[in-house]
């Protein structure tokens, strides 16, 4: 499992990428999905997840859908049209960042 500092900077990107690839998801589902996809290497902490989800909603990047589940309410999140664009930008930026880090830390010397 990676340290929370490493995950913190990528949280928005992870959430946006996951949500833009599926129809809608709720908070617990997001954490489980990430855990499943990374084989438990990345576990989103709830303490960071919900503030980010609420902020993204307030910014109009995410829209929500409220559904009654048993005795409680469940909030489903989905990406708006502007959010999809931002998700794409975030992923591109991050991929560029990774390339730079690989080069900077000399992890995989460039061939040729």
């Amino acid at each position: 499992m990676y340290s929370s500092e490493l995950i913190k900077g990528t949280l928005k990107t992870i959430i946006l990428k996951l949500l833009s690839e599926s129809d809608k998801m709720y908070g617990y589902e997001i954490t489980q999905k990430v855990k499943e996809l990374t084989g438990g290497k990345i576990q989103l902490t709830e303490g960071a997840l919900y503030p980010t989800l609420h902020a993204l909603e307030a910014q109009g990047i995410l829209s929500t859908d409220v559904v009654n589940v048993g005795n409680r309410i469940r909030k489903y999140y989905s990406v708006t049209i502007t959010g999809k664009q931002i998700a794409k930008e975030k992923v591109n930026e991050y991929s560029d960042f990774i390339d730079t880090m690989i080069f900077l830390l000399d992890l995989k010397p460039k061939m040729g």
Binding site: Y26, G27, Y28, E46, Y50, H54, R72, I73
Partner: peptide, 13 residues
Amino acid sequence: ELQLSLLDHICCV
């Protein structure tokens, strides 16, 4: 909003 979000999450867990 946050109360309900956390409630659902804890219940799910």
